[in-house]
């Protein structure tokens, strides 16, 4: 499958090393990457849904199916919600990244996140199979998502830095050779230029991305809340969705209390 090979290139860093980026930008196909991401996310969903099979008196296969759809949906919907604003603000601060390059960057970052998630999937499935404590499984899944998100975030910011700090056409050495003779008698007049700092716009782009990453996490958490139940409390009957109530943060704190206070 072509998507897997592309994902592999992204994971290995072949698609994002500096020579490759300088040559032809971020050259990854969005469609195949998103497809393989959806597939891997569905795989993680199956691992997540194992709890529905194991913890209930009678196995709930529908939870497995629901998760296999919901986890990919979680990522895609979060991306859909946050991408437009990212594009707008990115363009607003004068980024060098066009819409197409931005889409590729997002697809690659999501693919990395989902790959880590899928890699941790067997562990989640194992714990879901053997654990009866609902709170533990909830917190384990939150932790796994946090780890995967951390890797995706690190990839995103690193690649962004490489993309925006692409070497400017004027090479620095030329400036240095001019400075050396001038420094003999006109030292105060011509202070040595500092190392070429990134243009001011790039600082803006980095700031936009940092804010956006936080936004992505918040929206993702809230989206997961909208799409719940993912794990399914074993004491409640199966539902595809739950009514609107409470919030993600509150639920995580409740799980902590349940786990630590017995």
């Amino acid at each position: 499958m072509g998507g897997l090979r592309e994902l592999d290139r992204v994971l290995r860093g072949e698609a994002t090393d500096r020579p490759a980026l300088a040559r032809d930008g971020l050259a990854v196909p969005v469609g195949p990457l998103l497809r393989v991401s959806a597939l891997l996310a569905a795989g993680y969903g199956v691992c997540m849904g194992v709890y529905g099979l194991a913890a209930r008196a009678e196995p709930e296969v529908r939870q497995l199916l629901a998760d296999a759809v919901k986890v990919p949906a979680l990522f895609l919907l979060t991306l859909v919600v946050t991408f437009p604003s990212l594009y707008v603000f990115n363009a607003l601060v004068g980024s060098r990244l066009g819409a197409r390059e931005l889409a590729r960057l997002m697809a690659a970052a999501v693919a990395v996140t989902v790959a880590v998630l899928a890699g941790l999937g067997p562990i989640v499935a194992f714990f879901s199979l053997t654990t009866t404590s609902y709170a533990f499984v909830v917190l384990l899944n939150v932790a796994v998502f946090a780890v995967a998100g951390g890797f995706g975030l690190a990839f995103l910011l690193r690649t962004l830095e490489k993309l925006t700090a692409r070497p400017a056409p004027t090479p620095a050495p030329a400036a240095e050779t001019e400075l050396v003779p001038a420094g003999e008698d006109e030292a105060p007049a011509a202070p040595p230029t500092p190392p070429p700092a990134p243009p001011a716009t790039d600082v803006g782009v980095t700031a936009v991305f940092r804010v956006w990453v936080v936004l992505f996490a918040v929206v993702g958490a809230q989206m997961s809340w909208v799409l719940r139940p993912f794990i399914g409390s074993p004491t409640e009957p199966f539902t595809w969705f739950r009514p609107r109530e409470s919030s993600f943060v509150e639920a995580v704190l409740r799980s902590f209390r349940a786990l630590f206070a017995g």
């Binding site: 860093g13 990395v112 880590v116 890699g119 941790l120 067997p122």
Partner: peptide, 18 residues
């Protein structure tokens, strides 16, 4: 070992140690 290997593989790849 079998359960821990997949994530190990992905993380190694990500760190450029494939």
């Amino acid at each position: 070992t079998a359960l821990a290997l997949p994530s190990f593989f992905v993380m190694n790849s990500l760190l450029g140690l494939r």
